[in-house]
């Protein structure tokens, strides 16, 4: 069964205050984000709960959630650290493809997978708005720009 944490409940109160009472559906993305961050994924149970709170159908929640790439729908959580690796034009011009391969090899997974110890999830990502610092990757909420193999080693090794 899914439940929001106590901390999340406080957040929810704040979130709901942002939107007009009649339009609490606006809180859908924020609640999904809360869930994703709390659980590492968004389960059907969670979607049902969000639907109940916002007075929409669970199918609607899934419809919206599945449109966006930052939610992991289903029952399998992402790793403790999600590495989003920008592969778009500016980064590509600066060699991101090789670095992505390098990272995948280092973690011993395919792009899109999670390491066996559930620590890292590696994803190919479209432009993350750090084009002048490409190649770049985002590890959870932190941007790392101008990365090199050595920087990648250093960053990943420093993560506990």
């Amino acid at each position: 069964m899914f439940a929001f944490s106590e901390q999340a409940e406080k957040e929810i109160e704040k979130i709901l205050n942002k939107y007009p009472e009649k339009h609490k559906q606006s809180a859908l993305l924020p609640l999904l984000t809360l869930t994703q961050r709390q659980e590492g994924h968004v389960s059907p149970d969670a979607m049902r709960e969000i639907a109940r709170r916002l007075d929409v159908s669970p199918a609607y929640v899934q419809s919206v959630a599945s449109f966006y790439t930052m939610y992991t729908l289903g029952d399998t959580p992402v790793g403790k650290y999600t590495i989003l690796f920008c592969i778009n034009i500016s980064c590509q011009l600066n060699g991101c493809d090789e670095l992505l391969d390098y990272t995948a090899k280092k973690l011993n997974i395919q792009v899109g997978e999670t390491t066996a110890d559930k620590k890292f999830t590696l994803r190919r990502e479209e432009c993350l708005a750090a084009c002048t610092g490409g190649p770049m990757m985002r590890v959870n909420d932190t941007y790392h720009e101008n990365i090199t193999p050595a920087r990648i080693d250093q960053i990943l090794d420093s993560l506990k």
Binding site: K18, H23, Q25, S26, A27, L28, L29, P30, L32, T33, L54, V56, S63, V64, F67, Y68, T69, M70, Y71, E126, C127
Partner: peptide, 25 residues
Amino acid sequence: HLGAGAYICGEESALLNSLEGMRGE
């Protein structure tokens, strides 16, 4: 208000949809 990964939400009307808790079409 945070989006959730969709370039199209930069388009102003998709942005409004997204802000209203809809698919960003």
